[in-house]
Amino acid sequence: MDFEKLEVWKRACRISVEIYQTLRELKDFGFKDQITRSSLSVASNISEGMVRPTANDKIRFLHIANGSCAELRTQAYIGITIGYIPEDVGRKWVRETKEISAMLMGLVKKLRD
């Protein structure tokens, strides 16, 4: 399965780019590093998993991507609360990470079947 054709991978890449662009000027480098790394991890683990030879390998990496997605969602909530992320933007990221997670779990189900 070609990961570049997966809508979930495309959406994970888009949110990562948006996070980088939105937080470009943020001076809290620890927070910025953590949230950008977790966003990169989602798309990266999808791509790494989908090139693995077995369904179990693919599923393992999709679960890792889902964990990174949950981490990203947590950081969005915190970023909103501490004023680093505008509330409307952060809420959009929260919704998007929930949808990406659901898509990841749908792909896991498909691979198991």
Rank of each mutant, 00 (worst) to 15 (best):
K27F: 02
K27P: 01
K27V: 08
K27D: 10
K27C: 00
K27I: 06
K27Y: 06
D28N: 15
D28R: 12
D28P: 00
D28E: 13
D28I: 04
F29M: 13
F29W: 12
F29I: 14
F29Y: 15
F29G: 00
F29C: 05
G30H: 08
G30T: 14
G30D: 12
G30L: 09
G30W: 00
F31S: 10
K32I: 00
K32R: 15
K32T: 03
K32F: 00
D33Y: 00
D33P: 01
D33Q: 03
Q34I: 07
Q34L: 10
Q34K: 07
I35R: 04
I35H: 03
I35L: 08
I35S: 03
I35E: 02
I35P: 01
T36R: 12
T36K: 13
T36P: 01
T36D: 06
T36Q: 15
T36H: 00
R37D: 05
R37Y: 03
R37H: 12
R37V: 04
R37I: 04
R37K: 14
S38A: 15
S38I: 11
S38Y: 11
S38F: 09
S38M: 11
S39W: 09
S39I: 11
S39Q: 10
S39H: 04
S39V: 08
S39D: 00
S39F: 03
S39K: 07
L40F: 09
L40R: 13
L40N: 13
S41T: 07
S41V: 05
V42Q: 05
V42T: 11
V42F: 13
V42G: 03
A43H: 04
A43Y: 05
A43P: 00
A43K: 06
S44Y: 05
S44W: 02
S44G: 10
N45F: 11
N45T: 02
N45H: 10
N45C: 10
N45D: 11
N45Q: 10
N45E: 06
I46Q: 05
I46W: 12
I46R: 05
S47A: 15
S47E: 04
S47Q: 06
S47L: 02
S47C: 05
S47W: 02
E48C: 06
E48L: 06
E48Q: 11
E48D: 12
E48W: 12
G49S: 11
G49T: 07
G49Q: 08
G49M: 13
G49N: 11
V51I: 15
V51N: 08
V51C: 10
V51M: 12
V51L: 11
V51D: 12
V51A: 08
V51E: 14
R52V: 02
R52N: 02
P53Q: 15
P53Y: 15
P53N: 15
T54S: 15
T54H: 06
T54V: 04
A55Q: 14
N56T: 09
N56G: 01
N56P: 06
N56V: 11
N56M: 07
N56H: 06
D57T: 05
D57E: 14
D57V: 08
D57I: 02
D57F: 04
D57K: 09
